[in-house]
Design a protein around this nucleic acid. Structure first.
Lengths: 238, 238
DNA sequence: CGAAAAAGATGACTTTTATCAGGTTTGATC
DNA sequence: GATCAAACCTGATAAAAGTCATCTTTTTCG
């Protein structure tokens, strides 16, 4: 499973508009572009490992990557799932620490690597870009605070429902009419997102299906009744 | 309970050395100093509320403040506890969002307020300071990832033990010999930190006390056997 | 000081969810 | 297409932790 290089100019990248690099001046973008290395990864390959030192930033061009931590007993907790346009591994890079999580490819991915020096150079030269990165990081932190409170006080059923809705929002196709979660997640991975046992996820999914809240389409899940699901998630009272 | 103003020059602040303002050039520090308002708060007073818009940054000069979210049933989850030298409310300020949490005084506090404009001005003028803020925010984020994984996969007993150790580290007195947690936490607040019910915390604390792991001194807890506590937290295998 | 409120403690009970053990189905590989 | 592994599913059981009710102790405050 050798790594395969590919190359797309950042200016021509389909996902530039979704990325933090969007709005960067041509000069800085070309600096990034000239120093990047783009690699195709197969499902199951690792991008980086917990405990190692970051040497640069990963920018997703295609596919899906899970970022997770392993606990002592080997159980995974998935912190987030990166999709095209997302940065990967920026937290440890910016805090100058070791990676605290491992990144593994969920769906065949194309990922560009930008060396630390180039990224930091642009960051330092360009206060507006720095400002936007800070804003994004702090927004992300808000999401994590939300997750913490959810994990602390909601039942597994509520968390599963909430996460299905979240996945629909984040990984649904363009357009509001979309209800299919464009992510071929195993039950095990879904359990690692919700923070529960695989068996529990299986049981609850069958219940949700029996109640007409969701449907299975191949390896993917379609949200049939977002409103009822939100009720299950205790997001709306009525 | 009127708010009482006080004033201490930032350059003379005892906690400057623990703060992100440490190392700031005299010019920038005086800009901060000249625009700040310092207020004394009593236990129980609120600094800011979830859902409101931040207008500046709070910098702790004394006391303790809890930052928490309320869930639908009114149960609190404490995200962190700010101590002197800490910034308060910077996440929402930097992400330009509403506060997602409420801040309430745990122990009578002295807090300086720096208006958004002054803080942003220094931030923009001073790339080194910006860099340090980013680094701190990303470090904080790493701690939250850790907490997420802990909440997802550890038992209440393990989490309580881990949190007691954490509290000892963060709120113990200076010097490594210190074992007393310098925080008068109610059982209810401790439960809100661990993410469990008050009764459960009470029961587990009695067990820890019976096993000689901790002792109560007034409203405070002393860690008697950090090693055994770490074993309870499943942090060490042996 | 004394009354009221808040915090702490304990017991009984129930619910939730993890775990284990055994199945079946699906999918990849030779 | 046979074989093996992985993923998925189901049921039984046990443990963990929440809830509720009650009681005691401590704190607050007029």
């Amino acid at each position: 499973m050798a790594k395969v290089e590919f190359n797309i100019a950042c200016t021509l990248c389909d996902h530039l508009k979704d990325s933090l690099f969007n709005g960067l001046n041509p000069e800085d973008l070309s600096r990034i572009n000239n120093h990047k290395t783009c690699i195709q990864y197969k499902k199951g390959q690792n991008i980086f490992y917990e405990g190692t030192r970051p040497t640069g930033l990963y920018c997703m061009n295609g596919g899906k990557v899970k970022v997770f931590k392993n606990n002592v007993q080997g159980k995974e907790f998935i912190i987030y799932i990166a999709k095209p346009g997302d940065f990967l591994g920026y937290r440890a890079l910016l805090s100058e620490e070791f990676y605290q999580a491992t990144a593994t490819v969920l769906e065949d991915a194309k990922i560009c690597f930008i060396p630390k020096e180039s990224f930091f150079e642009v960051l330092q030269k360009n206060p507006t870009f720095m400002r936007r990165v800070v804003q994004a990081v702090c927004h992300e932190m808000g999401i994590m605070e939300e997750k913490l409170a959810e994990l602390a006080h909601k039942s597994v059923r509520e968390r599963l429902a909430a996460n299905l809705l979240m996945l629909k929002e984040s990984y649904g196709m363009e357009g509001e009419g979309s209800t299919l979660i464009e992510l071929a997640l195993s039950r095990e991975d879904l359990a690692s997102i919700v923070g529960t046992a695989t068996e529990t996820v299986i049981r609850l999914l069958s219940e949700f299906k029996a109640d007409g809240l969701i449907a299975f389409e191949g390896k993917k899940i379609r949200v049939l009744d977002a409103r009822k699901l939100a009720k299950q998630a205790d997001l709306i009272i009525a």
